[in-house]
Design a protein around this nucleic acid. Structure first.
Lengths: 199, 199
DNA sequence: TGTTAGCTTGACACTGTGTCAAGCGGGTGC
DNA sequence: GCACCCGCTTGACACAGTGTCAAGCTAACA
């Protein structure tokens, strides 16, 4: 029965999520996921063709669970460019820690698996849209620093907000999450906003 | 004979280097390296205990070949803080493309191999010293922006100059190397230098 | 001439992914 | 009540890549 099928599928995705979160994304085997989901390893392949496919499905499942879309509403509603930039950094920056472990797993597969690479790149391209919109909003307000053309400014913002940079600052350097958010907002203003009036 | 031993060792390291560079760091097997070095796969293990150990040795070998130390001389000789910041970004930024493929290979192992992780972290810690010195020089000149305490400024500079960020800007965004260097210099000035007089 | 260092040859173990065939049990249709 | 099928289990096996081991070869050196 297809409802039963879907139920198992969700159990698998939940299992994958839990295990990835528990083990910081590394060393989660198919057999571990299967056991946690209460089925055999082989049965996993009745739902997902490969490990990569399972992980990709897990990230989409995660998005669904965490609700990415809703989080971006405030940034879209922003009236000024600066406000939009701030709201976007706030929204994305707060989202990173929630997807971090899964992102790690996907990033680790990027080298070996074509599909995983594409899934990650798609996801990053989506995020880039937000960066572009924020820069464009700033530009419309005539508040974008003339130092960088919009396209390059987008590249820079996109790079600044990468998961890897979040990882380095919070995990490696030990920054608390709020400092990460505040510093990135401050940096973005310093870099992108013309005629600085605040830091 | 130990001289023969060393000769083979260098042949292995050269082989590893060549292959890693050719294949962008991924999918290089022990057998490939062995063949290229003109020995058997098993003989590799007479020189390196594991694949990780070989890769780590390869990175040190690379440093030797490329001469990291000499490149940093100009930045140490700089008279002003700003000059030092510029020189450091120039030196490190120019070095990244040369070590990039090996860095990739090492980064890929970071998740699974303890020793590889340590080797990479050590390397990054070295680089961080340069960042710290540049920030300190700026601070001594009273040119460090009050917006960030020196420790945090170091964290930010260190993160900005990561290999991943270089990868994203040059490879993903398609920036030419000179633009990368110039933009990073410009960004660093904008962020760290107080009372901006230039962009 | 005998010894030894450095390599080869040809095994084998192990891990993890992915595949296959046969079987089983419970619900559904007739 | 019977047959059927779906979703899963069981127990194989293939395959790639790393790492290990024992025995043998060969050139150089004492």
């Amino acid at each position: 029965m297809s409802s039963n099928n879907l139920e198992t599928r969700n159990r698998i995705l939940n299992a994958a999520l839990t295990l990835l979160e528990a083990s910081r994304g590394k060393g989660v085997r198919m057999i571990d996921i299967a056991k946690r989901a209460g089925i055999t390893r082989q049965a996993l392949y009745l739902h997902f063709r490969t490990r990569a496919e399972l992980l990709i499905a897990t990230t989409y499942y995660l998005d669904e669970v965490k609700g990415v879309e809703e989080r971006l509403i405030p940034s879209r509603a922003a009236r000024s460019g600066i406000e939009r930039l701030d709201a976007f950094i706030e929204a994305w920056g707060s989202y990173i820690p929630e997807i971090y472990v899964i992102a790690e797993a996907l990033l680790a597969m990027k080298d070996t698996d074509e599909a995983a690479a594409k899934a990650w790149d798609d996801r990053m391209r989506d995020m880039r849209q937000g960066c572009e919109a924020a820069i464009r909003a700033l530009n419309s307000d005539n508040m974008l620093s003339p130092a960088y053309p919009p396209a390059q400014a987008t590249d820079v913002l996109w790079t600044m907000l990468s998961v890897r940079n979040w990882e380095q600052l919070t995990i490696e350097c030990g920054w608390p999450q709020e400092r990460y958010i505040e510093t990135l907002k401050s940096l973005a203003r310093r870099i992108f906003v013309a005629e600085r009036t605040s830091n």
